[in-house]
Design a protein around this nucleic acid. Sequence first.
RNA 1: GCGGAUGUGGUGGAAUGGUAUACACGCUAGUUUUAGGAACUAGUGCCGAAAGGCGUGGAGGUUCGAGUCCUCUCAUCCGCACCA
Length: 932
Amino acid sequence: MKKYDPKTIEPNWQQTWADTKLYAAVTGDTAREKYYMLTEFPYPSGAGLHAGHTREYTLGDVIARHKRMQGFNVLYPMGYDAFGLPTENFAIKHKIRPQDATSQNVEVFRQQFDSLGLSFDWDREVNTTHPDYYRWTQWLFLKFHAAGLAYQAEMPINWCPKEKTGLSNEEVVDGKHERCGTPVEKKLIKQWMLKITAYADRLIEGLKTVDYPSRIADQQVNWIGRSEGAEIDFLVGESGVAPKDSLKFTPELTKLVLDGSKTNTVRLEPKNLQVGDIASLITRLSPTDTQVFAQAKVTKIETMPLGQIPLDLDGHEPFASTDEQLAAYRGYYGDTVGFDTEFTIYYFDSVQPTVTVYTTRPDTLAGATFLVLAPEHAAVAQITTPDQRSQVEAYVKKAQGESEIDRQNTDRTKTGVFTGAYSANPITGAKVPVWIADYVLASYGTGAIMAVPAHDERDFAFAKAFKLDIQQVVSGDDLPAVATGKLINSGQFDGLEGAEAKRAIVKYLEDKGSAKTAVKYKLRDWIFSRQHYWGEPIPIVHCEHCGAVPVPEDQLPITLPDVEHYEPTETGESPLAAITDWVNTACPKCDKPAKRETDTMPNWAGSSWYYLRYMDAHNDQAFASPEALKYWGEVDLYLGGMEHTTLHLLYSRFWHQFFYDQGLVPTPEPYAARRGQGIVLAADGRKMSKSIGNVVNPTDIIASYGADTLRLYILFMAPYDETTPWSEERLAGASRFVWRVWALAQELIEAHAFTRAMKPGPGDAFETEVDRATHKAIKKVHDELGGMRFNTAVSALMEYVNFLSDAKTKARLLEPASAALAWRALNTLVQLLAPITPHMSEELWHQLGYPGSVHVAGWPEYDPELIKDDVVVIVVQVNGKVRANLAMTPDATQSELAEAAKADPNVAKYLQDGQLLKTIVVPRKLVNFVVK
RNA sequence: GCGGAUGUGGUGGAAUGGUAUACACGCUAGUUUUAGGAACUAGUGCCGAAAGGCGUGGAGGUUCGAGUCCUCUCAUCCGCACCA
């Protein structure tokens, strides 16, 4: 008997498959239907593949192989998402180039992929760090820039004051730098942003057209966090002020704003503003805007070509009623970098400061008994009274060091400080104090809320803690009552309810010019800058005269300079800023000396579009040809980690939707279906972790058991999307099964002189039984694989092998008369196992005498007639308790079933004592008698 | 905290509203001169001598019938925007 030797057969077949390019996908093959199976490409860390990767790629491989055997033209590609911090840190620490660290790691990954027997099409391999690839990442960024969706803003980064370095969130632990323990500060840095918020609604809508599990779709919807409500203006002063008619934006003022003289007045929204927002704010001018003004000194005005006016933050055209204004406006916007960032804000004395709050419950307005501002709110300094100033300033400083997650924790004791200022409730006229508190976030809504303690749990807790008024305005029971009912204590609005109440109150305020309906999202724009070396350079040149100028497409890629040192700078700038040879360049527009943008892109950039590059991986004229994009279309199935649901998956959909709008891709969504695989825990039930030392290395497993065993175990251990612990013992069980299949196959092969033209047998009861089991196995395995129920697919194969291995069955299968029957069974078994244990199946296939590969040999089909059972077991219940089993023919009628059930002695025993009320008969299943 | 999910034997898990625990691991007993991380046979939810009863985190509900549907609740896991 031939010994099962995975160490020999696995590498042999891997080599043959590679040599023959067995798994190459053919773009434009119309004879076969295409199937695009995508798994997330890995970050090639130094540690090599981990158990999670192994699970993900094995799952994808089984699907790809199953589809390929069914005759699909399968694209199952792989690549590397290799930019990022770990490699950069590793390279700095070991004084090597990150390029070299990456290629070493990639080599290890490649070997491990091959050793798992994964059927990737290696002709399409991509690597996000190769200039041939990131050339197109840069090109796509320029599309965003040209469309006005890439803009610059002052955004905070985590800053370690001791090491003078920017930190990722991951490096901040409990508000401290994890390496040196220094409390982390926020530092404002001008960064590139992508306006993903412009696609918020599309990202929600698009989910209706794709097949994502609800846990993924729901999480995306909640992450985007769309809410409809109202922005309401509150006038604020020391003693409280009654609402009054809003100031109109006078023509004189408009002119002043759009005048290009050295001192310009611009209107600021009363929310937390950053200096970089000025340019955007100018776009929001409109004649109905009111009330709070600020002044900015503008030192330079640059112009910008026609047709490049971006939409404002709300996606509207900027206000401009005359050509003159439009021209002036262009000057402002084009000067996003030309603004003197040293500007001061002051409020006109004649105007009462206004705080705009955002609320989803305008119906509860009468119950607003105080206002709460985020500590970072721009109006705080302005409204705080002298006697409260020191307290307020201390609180603002304290809040700076807190994480948003902590601040949103409603279990936490509420903290806050009174500013000394008051406003007035627009309905009741009651005096309402203005507080600041960290539970209000500057980054959401307007950074200020009207607190309605009677109908909001957080406001309720705050009011209790600081003994503030609580005024119920919606009828209901225990406060805080969050549900909607009829309004009370709301003056003219009493008796209104729900949406009607909301509309009426917003309308009332709207007419007075102090409110408007508003849609807000929790989703924030994407900070697209990283102050690191190991990323795609952002293809922009900053010119004193022309501003931020995109690098012309024919000059791409802007490659990373190949240098010795790229440690982070002490200024928080990218390390690239210190490489003067690289930074200094000529302006593409005016050819005068200029400087390159030194920020690089986040890791998410390259991974946002890589699935498109696989379609046409070597194209040097385009990121992919229109033909390839059209042929491969949507990814049919995208498998990846649940942890990518709200970041990578959302970013990637955003890019794709934008590309669709630009006419760059033919489909509105990138992924027709998405599934998330579960996490593989260590055997101890904890997460695998190098520091705990409970990590499973796939290479070790392959060395001792072979890849086929590992693959089978991974599929069998749990449903693919469940988190489940690793078990060496169950892996050994999987190994036993593989060995048993091999041994059974060898016995059958040795017993029979198999030829491919085997004559059918006599067709007796035994043959029927075996064939029925075979065809049931085909149906079951096919259905389970198609439904991604891999664990039960393996169970079905085990049951089938158990059936064939049963002593009596096996003995008869070994008889010479059963040669054809054994041939049929073994052929089928090898084919059904092929997606799961590709090496062993291929080896057995060749032992059966086939010259070609089992992996392109077709998928067996079952005969629906053959799998019909002669007898079905009917369960008989009395009052829902099982009292008997009956063997009946499948086509027995309801009355036949009921009669047969009544005739059963054990059932009769239970029926005789009571009155038969009801008989339920489910054909082919059960009979239930209800007895009193 | 917010958002998402998951709770079934000693363990991983199976079960179109219809016999709860398939398949596998582990364990127990036995067989085999069995080098092995073997192979084979029988058994293995709990209570009970049996008849029978009880059992899917907990409490209710719908139904002839609930692991499955509904309400509440408890526990655990994942994500939270500069990790990828």
